[in-house]
Design a protein around this nucleic acid. Structure first.
Lengths: 159, 159
DNA sequence: TTCCTATTCAAGAATTATTCTTATTCGGGG
DNA sequence: CCCCGAATAAGAATAATTCTTGAATAGGAA
């Protein structure tokens, strides 16, 4: 099991180095260790947690570097954020079951409804995690509004 | 259309008053207008946006009251938050398609996999919203760990 | 290998979102 | 109408994240 885990991390590290080289992003010690930290856990850590983990190996690393690096890795497609990234809390008074289309560019969430998606059959493994209260499908993509004004976007690491 | 919208808001306001009365939460002007603001939009506004909207009608309302009220409404089950609430950014290096079980108590996100859920058929209406990049199923509920130490939880408005 | 330069980094200040503290006000039961 | 616990406004405090600046470094060129 540990062996398997190590193999996965090694694969991810390899891909990390490839992607960095391809996109001209420098391979620094800090970057490598921040990625290794996220790649080595299933826990979806936040920046602070990553910071603490990496600090064991690089005691001088700053929290700011961790943040910067995480967003860089995100822009490179090497990691993902859970839920909408860099967002403040948003609220919804529509309690009828519905689903979400989240624009990865502007962050706007559009509702849509689907009788089929309301009645998904979930695998048994989910019941082993806890008591299910609700289910929703989250689709991510680029909304038409953003697609139109494309090109003018930031995070164009893919120069 | 506007007429329909008004009807929905009225229904929601009615339910709001009922739920408040039942749970012994006082019916204040501020609470009413904060709820009306969220109930009257499809936009999933954040606290600041609600604040600005309500301020037109109650110029003296404070941002703190808006925050407090929104979480109260959330605890009462009158509104919901988008994504995991009150959360900082979390990261994930697992790029293989997988799905999420989010615990509404502790906020922890557990991964699970399902070949069936990987290949959902989305309604055509989604294509009209934008270009789809990825799809994931988010299940919300209470994880076993939290269920065990139940009772000792905050936000027990349902005394 | 050594040098050069754009990139990256650390540290701490600054910003932004959210919550807490305290004195005051108010809803609604008696 | 009066009272009291709950709710509010205002501003201070805290927490999360980003910005600024000067120093350090990766990695290509000589």
């Amino acid at each position: 099991m540990v062996q398997l885990r190590k193999k996965i991390v090694d694969q991810r590290m390899k891909r990390f180095e490839e992607v960095c080289r391809e996109s001209g992003v420098k391979l620094t010690y800090q970057r490598m260790e921040v990625f290794r930290e996220v790649a080595g856990t299933e826990d979806h850590p936040d920046a602070e947690t990553v910071f603490h983990g990496v600090r064991k190996r690089i005691p001088t690393i700053s929290l700011d570097t961790v943040y910067r690096t995480l967003w860089t890795l995100n822009d490179l497609g090497l990691i993902k954020t859970l839920g909408a990234s860099r967002e403040r809390s948003r609220f919804d008074a529509n309690l009828d079951q519905h689903h979400h289309f989240v624009c990865t560019q502007c962050g706007h969430t559009y509702d849509f409804i689907s009788e089929t998606l309301n009645n998904l059959h979930l695998p048994d493994s989910v019941d082993e995690l806890g008591k299910i209260e609700s289910t929703l499908v989250e689709v991510r993509g680029v909304c038409h509004k953003c697609a139109k004004k494309a090109g003018t976007k930031k995070s164009n690491i893919t120069k």
